[in-house]
Design a protein around this nucleic acid. Structure first.
Lengths: 218, 218
DNA sequence: TAGCTTGATTTATGTAACCGTTTTCATAGT
DNA sequence: ACTATGAAAACGGTTACATAAATCAAGCTA
């Protein structure tokens, strides 16, 4: 009935979605971007979107919050979260103990240590070109990369056939194995539920870097 | 005179500016960008514009191999190789860069970084009680622990039900999931090809520690 | 009456369109 | 032949619009 409908009409304060409820959580502007950069920009925006979510709360603007709660932020990321390795990794002494002593049974905390090492050194080769990503999704599960794992990505390495790479594809970052065959270049997931993706000449896929390590935390 | 003007009109091949003569050198698309990121994106676009003009190609690799090859020593251990974390992990400053510093956009190697982290801090909670093991075997493959992976083990954590633990069993170290049921305490591999192991009262199984992380290197 | 449905209202977001500017070409005038 | 002028085409910033998503209030149903 038109009568019924009429009664529903009218201005209503507080109706509608809330401000800042969009995916960026803030007002937006329109920008013109060269075509080749579009997917890269989008990917980055998605990334920093999840980053700010991870920040703390929807505290409207102050971004001062950034605590060191890495773990928390992992859970909330839409696609990835990313970090950089610590800036200034000192060279730490690495005492070498004989590995034969190993037999000495349960207490490794004592003197017969093999070797001490700095995880940063072990895992990061090119500090300046390395960053960390937290995975979401299971497209690489066959090689043990699981949802929530942290990837160490080196941008200075050349993406070669067979390497695990981070690619910006249609504005989204993905982890895939790079495969260069006679049939062309492919991005291959390590999960039979997902199809390989052909990288065409004209496609706007950008390789961000090569994955050197994957870290699972329990 | 209108006559004069008319003669000048009409379609004229080749007239007008050339394609790609704009500041980006290619066609553009409009994107919506959150306000706080606008200047950042613009800065990056300008940056990469001038770079490509300058013809600076990213040289494929520009790195000197770091000498300390941890990997070698991994191979020599019979069951596991082990290491301790670096002794003296300093608290490293974690610079928070202002987003005004902008610089390189998708290149995290540059300055506009949100957060840096120290892998030691991220992965090691109790430095004194932590050591590293290199896995041999595939008994935990279902949760992504593969042969050759490095485990971070914390001896100070209490082995609880469901935790991944390192157990010394008949003189051999193994990784298993600890399961405490009414049927008793079990060490359960994450691989259907291996049987769970019942831990009897009198058995000489010693739990060395709880696995907090697993690292795969590619 | 509680919960579901429906339509209105408000914000969000991708895209088309608009319009002044810039670059280039062709013709007219000198 | 050289310059001035206007048209054509692309550029790029901005506005406008259409559709989607989120939220509220009133009506409806059980």
């Amino acid at each position: 009935m038109s009568n019924t409908i009429d009664k529903r009409g009218g201005i209503r304060q507080g109706a509608g979605r809330k401000k800042g409820s969009g995916k960026f959580g803030e007002p937006t502007k329109v920008l013109r971007v060269p075509e080749s950069k579009v997917s890269e920009v989008q990917a980055w925006l998605n990334l920093s979107k999840s980053q700010s979510k991870a920040g703390v709360k929807a505290s409207t603007f102050s971004e001062v919050e950034l605590g060191i709660s890495i773990n928390k932020s992992q859970q909330e990321c839409s696609e990835f979260a990313w970090y950089l390795p610590a800036n200034d990794v000192n060279f730490i002494e690495i005492p070498l103990y004989s590995h034969k002593v190993v037999a000495g049974f349960p207490s490794p905390a004592d003197d017969y240590i093999e070797q001490r090492l700095d995880l940063n050194e072990k895992l990061i080769r090119n500090k300046e070109a390395t960053f960390l990503l937290v995975v979401q999704g299971d497209s690489m599960q066959k090689i043990g990369i699981k949802d929530g794992d942290t990837l160490i990505v080196d941008r200075s390495l050349e993406p070669k056939d067979g390497k695990i790479v981070i690619a910006a594809l249609d504005g989204e970052l993905t982890v895939k194995r790079l495969s260069m065959k006679s049939t062309g270049t492919w991005l291959v997931p390590e999960n039979d539920d997902y199809p390989p993706i052909l990288v065409r000449e004209e496609s706007d896929i950008v390789i961000w870097g090569v994955v050197t390590s994957a870290i699972s935390q329990f």
